[in-house]
Design a protein around this nucleic acid. Structure first.
Lengths: 97, 97
DNA sequence: AAAATTTGGTTTTTATTATAAACTTGTTTA
DNA sequence: TAAACAAGTTTATAATAAAAACCAAATTTT
């Protein structure tokens, strides 16, 4: 009981990012920013951390003349997310609702 | 979607504390320390924060000649915990498992 | 019976984190 | 052509988690 919660995922913003990407696989920076309501700066930093950890991959391209940053969850990211959820269940189980 | 997660509960140790107390209502310092594996210092600080927030009440007494600190979750604490769980579900729903 | 250890903590310090503020590069619009 | 906007990144700051150091009293050891 009370397994450690992956600190990379135990963060409101990073968890929201992963939650989005688990659902739709791929999304761009602006979409994630709007969906999460995060500041661009914060989002940039957190995406980087998730990439460093191998939880997602980031592709840079152009949409017309503007830069575009696309994020995609990796198999490792999916694993980590599922693990996190499993660990978390132990903490919240008693309060099933 | 993506309601804010109560930052007081979004902490591994504080969540574990609340998880224990949701189940058994009342528990003493040593029991919680053992169950969570936290250091006494960290536990002391986090219990204090939860008390400050009105999520639990702390009673001090003696067990024989030794001091004893007993913690009990409050109705407000139960509410907060349930709210947190509800909010969290939104984040982890896609990964139902 | 003094010294060392244990119990049950609290206070203080340190390292990490999350987040926002400021900045960059380029583009569109007034 | 200057101001405003798009899409980010980098840097600075404020909050947090967690451990280390400390304390007082009780107990055990020598």
């Amino acid at each position: 009981m009370y397994n450690d919660l992956d600190p990379l995922l135990h963060s409101q913003l990073r968890l929201a990012i992963m939650s989005i990407l688990i659902g739709i696989e791929e999304a761009d920076f602006v979409f994630i920013r709007e969906k999460t309501g995060a500041s661009a700066g914060n989002l940039s930093v957190q995406l980087d951390k998730l990439m460093e950890a191998g939880y997602l991959e980031i592709r840079k391209s152009f949409k017309g003349k503007f830069p575009r940053t696309t994020c995609k969850i990796t198999p490792q990211g999916i694993d980590a997310f599922e693990n996190y959820v499993r660990a978390l269940q132990e903490y919240i189980k008693p309060g099933q609702l």
